[in-house]
Nucleic acid binder design. Structure first.
Lengths: 144, 144
DNA sequence: CAAAAACAGGATAGTTTTATCCTGTTTAAA
DNA sequence: TTTAAACAGGATAAAACTATCCTGTTTTTG
């Protein structure tokens, strides 16, 4: 569904959010360990997330990554997906046909649109904050 | 969503089906041309589809690919997807976590399951025949 | 039987994605 | 001011996916 990079991005963002809820920053090393992701690759993805405004990075001793409460509320899963994977998954034809559209639909156009719209609605309707709260209260888990 | 190989596989299968509805076989070359796919790569994928029992191949002069009407009715999109891409998309965790399950769910487990189940139901509920009929009557299109 | 049409499949190449390494810069604290 | 913790980012490597090429085999037809 999503690229590995995107999976790592969501996992990292949610881990950062749980730490930020407690007022702590977290390092790339700890993010990688706690989400079961490769550390250097995770570092690259965090650069993208930082540039994209999803998280904040602070250099130097006692630095690390953090997210403000406001940003947690404002950031939806769909933004992270778009940032890392682009919006092909939200807009592209299920069979990869460039010429596919409502007027000249591919054989699966209608059926796909329904599923894709539900996926889109789900990702747009889910905030980082609500997912982070689920992790905080122990009802969901991140470690692979 | 799907790999290129899988997109080509579905496009090829549907093209073969439309020709088979008219009683004709179709060559790799024509399949590749009419679906806008690379010919040699399409040939490889057709080998997989043949081994998997989705289509039949006939060698020699006047050979080519075909599908019986029974097989068109029996074959669902889900089978083609599983054959080419595996069933990761139907079973895997949205965040790529091996340890994710209903008892120890990842933060997006429930929301993903809903979308994925709809995708699964759609693919399992769609036969090659019905899609081929749409192509035949001109209500849908394949060429990219 | 010879020739041509067509698939089968191994070998190889190109591209993208995933992953690592290393050097540089920033910052807090001793 | 030196040191150490931590991110930034370029270079490189490994793996997976996509794509091509070439030779062999099968089969029909002349």
């Amino acid at each position: 569904m999503f690229s590995k990079a995107c999976e790592y991005a969501i996992r990292a963002t949610l881990l950062i959010a749980t730490h930020s809820l407690e007022g702590n920053r977290v390092s790339v090393k700890d993010i990688a360990e706690d989400t079961g992701s490769p550390v250097a690759f995770t570092g690259k993805i965090l650069q993208q997330l930082t540039k994209g405004g999803v998280v904040r990075s602070v250099q130097g001793v006692h630095g690390g990554f953090e997210i403000g409460r406001r940003e947690m509320e404002a950031t939806r899963l769909s933004e992270i997906v778009s940032l890392i994977d682009g919006d092909h998954i939200f807009t592209g034809c299920g069979l990869g046909l460039r010429a596919c559209n409502a007027l000249k639909p591919c054989p699966v156009h209608g059926r796909f649109a329904a599923v894709r719209d539900e996926l889109k609605a789900m990702l747009e309707g889910t905030t980082v904050l609500e997912l982070a709260l689920g992790l905080k209260d122990g009802s969901t888990f991140l470690k692979r």
